[in-house]
Amino acid sequence: MQANRRRDTKPELILRSALHRAGYRYRCDLRLDLEGGRVRPDIVFTRRRIAILVDGCFWHCCPIHGSRPSVNEDYWSPKLLRNVERDRRNDSLLESAGWTVIRIWEHVPVADALERVRLVLNAED
């Protein structure tokens, strides 16, 4: 698991590149110290208080593409469940601090993800 990246994953880089080409400027992997805990969204629009998290299908138990581990299930099942619980806790922390949370699955086409972010950014204006 040491080789698994926390930041700069392929889906995240693709989305960041599309956002940059569209003229948006953002912060990457910014640690937010909130009341109740810390959160590290993948992409952050600080002034607009928008946090974007790009979730991998396996690691965050995607309802469409998430797969159940077949080897060492006693380790992986609780680990993946803790990831999902942490995601919900982080969403709650961000929202209670006044942030807008956008979660994007890795399988979502980049055009769709970019449009979703654009809609939220335009709604904030």
Results as ranks from 00 to 15, higher is better:
L13H: 02
A22R: 09
W105S: 02
R21T: 04
L34V: 10
P41L: 12
G56H: 07
R40F: 05
D42K: 12
N83T: 03
N122Y: 05
R31P: 13
L32H: 10
I50H: 09
V101G: 07
R47C: 07
I43L: 09
L32V: 00
V84G: 08
V101L: 13
H20F: 14
V110F: 03
A97Q: 03
T100C: 03
D87K: 04
Q2I: 05
L34A: 14
A18Q: 01
E115V: 02
Y26W: 08
E124P: 09
D55V: 05
P11A: 11
A97W: 06
Q2T: 08
I102G: 04
L81H: 15
C62Y: 05
I14A: 10
V108I: 14
R7D: 08
N72E: 03
G66K: 01
V39M: 12
D42I: 00
R38Q: 12
W59M: 07
D42W: 11
V117Y: 03
D91W: 05
A123K: 13
I104H: 11
C61Q: 11
P69T: 00
E124D: 15
F45V: 06
A113K: 04
D91Q: 06
L53F: 14
V84N: 09
F58L: 00
Y26I: 00
L114V: 00
G98L: 05
R31I: 15
N83L: 00
H60F: 10
R5C: 14
P63R: 07
W59N: 08
